[in-house]
Simulated assay, not measured.
Amino acid sequence: MLLEAGFSPYADNTELEGELFSKKEGVPDKGTIAPIEKERPQRVTIGTKEGDAPMGVTEALEMALSIKKRTLRESTYIKFRSRANRFGEWAVQRFGKGHNVALLDKRTVMEYLNEVLQRTSARNRNNARADLSSLFQTLEDNDIIARNVVKGIPQLRTQPKRNKTYAPDLLAKVEGHMGKNDPLLLLFVRFVSYCFLRPIEVCRLRVRDIDVRDKKLYLRTKTKLDKTKIIPDILLGELPDISAMDPEHFLFTPEGIGGVWDTSEENKRGYFTNRFKRVKEELGLGKEYGLYSFRHTYITQLYRKLAKDNPSFVAKSKLLPITGHSTMDALEKYLRDIDAELPDDYSHLFER
C-alpha cells in the first residue's frame, strides 16, 4: 500500500517516488519516462491504392456505369450511358486518356455543360448535369474522388414543353381517323386515355399483366416496381380475347396484340410515337399534340365532371387513385399544368 510506504496526500512525495519506482524492474525513473508517440495517420490518396497510378477519366466512368447499370431501368440506363460517354469523349479529347479523374473540377464540368447548352438546349444541359452529378456521386461514394464537384452547379430555368389538350371536336376527329385507319394504334391510345398510363408503360405490358376476370392491370412504373390499376369496363369492351395467348408475350407489337418484340422500351415508345406522327401529318396537327395529349384530355374531362357535383378537394380525392399520382400535391400541380382547373364564368363581376 502506498500509504504504508509513507505516501501522504498533503506532502511532497518526490523523493519517495524516486526510491520506490526506480527499484521496480522495467519502470524508468521519474523524469526519464519517454514520451508516447501518437500514431501518425496514413496518407490517403483519393482515386488510387498504394503503388497504383491515378484512375483515368475513361476507367472511372466505366466503373461508375457498371454500378449504375445494376440500379437503373434499361430505358433510363441507355440515356445515362450515352450522356456519360459523351462527357468521357470530351474529357479525353481535352486532357488525354490517362487524365486523373480526381483532377476534374467544377470549372471544367461547367465548360462542358456550356458547350451542351450552345449545341442543344437548356433542358438537355440540365439533363446532362443531373446524370453527371449522379455519376460523380458514385465516384465519391467509392472514394475515387474527394467530392462531387457537379453538386455545386445550378440548374438553368427552362420553359417546359407541354402536350396540348384536345378540344372535343378535334378529339372525335382524331379518334375516328385512327378507328378507321389504324385500330391497333387506337387501342394503344385507349390504354393511355382510360387507364391514364404513360406510353412507355403501355409498351411494357405483357399478356400476363392483363387480368380480364378480376379487371386488374399490373404494370411497372418509373417510380414503383409494381403497381395495380383497375381496367374500366369501357376498355374491357374493346379488348380482344387474349386468354389463349402466351402470357410472356408483349401485349402490343407492330404486328398486333400479343407477340414477341425484342427491342428496347425506348424503341417501342418511339415506334408508336412515330406511328401517331403519321396520323398527325394526315390531319395537319402540329407538334403540340402527341400521345400524352390523350392522357391530359381524359384526366381533364374526368376532373371537370367530378368537380360539377363535388367540392374541389373531394373531386381531387376521388381522382387521385384513378390517375395514380403519388400525392395530392403532385395531382394538383399536374392539373394546374394542363389547365384542367378553370374558374366559372365571372362576367357578373364586371357588372356595375
Rank of each mutant, 00 (worst) to 15 (best):
H348M: 02
L135V: 10
S243F: 05
F252Y: 12
E50Y: 08
R269S: 09
L156I: 11
L117W: 06
K164I: 02
A91C: 10
M55P: 03
K318P: 01
D226N: 13
Q42Y: 12
M178W: 11
P247F: 06
N124C: 07
I231N: 03
M63G: 15
P254V: 14
G96A: 08
G18I: 14
G56V: 04
L331T: 03
E265D: 11
Y218M: 14
Q155S: 09
L3M: 05
K308A: 13
D241Y: 09
I242Y: 14
K106F: 03
G270V: 00
A340Y: 12
N181Y: 08
Y77H: 07
T223G: 08
D214R: 15
A315T: 07
K38G: 07
P28E: 01
E255F: 12
L171W: 09
V314R: 05
K106Y: 07
H296D: 09
D105H: 02
L342A: 09
F191G: 03
L306G: 13
D141H: 01
Y218W: 14
K222H: 03
L16V: 06
A102S: 13
S317M: 15
R147T: 04
H296A: 05
W261A: 08
R83C: 00
R198I: 01
P343M: 04
W261N: 15
P154N: 12
L291K: 05
T221G: 13
L283M: 12
M55H: 02
R206V: 04
R336Y: 07
Y166T: 00
P183V: 10
T14M: 00
K277S: 07
P232H: 07
P41E: 15
G286V: 02
V279N: 09
D52H: 07
G26P: 01
Q301V: 01
H99P: 08
P160F: 02
R157E: 14
I144C: 05
R86E: 00
L72A: 12
R94H: 13
V260D: 15
V92F: 10
N127F: 15
G18M: 07
A60Q: 03
M63A: 03
F188L: 09
R198Q: 05
E341F: 03
N142S: 07
L349D: 00
L285A: 02
A84N: 02
I33K: 04
R352N: 07
E288F: 02
D226I: 13
L170T: 10
I231Q: 06
K229I: 06
R86S: 05
S121Y: 03
K215N: 06
L132K: 12
T263N: 14
A315H: 12
Y77L: 06
D309L: 02
L61A: 02
G286C: 05
D345E: 00
E111D: 14
F21N: 04
K229C: 06
V57N: 08
L205K: 00
E62G: 14
A60D: 02
M178D: 06
A11R: 07
T221Q: 08
P311H: 11
V109T: 11
P9G: 05
T323F: 04
L217P: 10
L251E: 10
N124A: 11
A64H: 06
D169E: 15
N142L: 10
K318N: 05
V174N: 08
P232T: 10
Q118W: 00
P168R: 04
I338C: 01
T58S: 10
G98R: 11
E265S: 12
I322E: 12
P54R: 02
K24V: 12
G56Q: 08
G259V: 10
E266Q: 04
K333F: 01
E238H: 12
R94F: 09
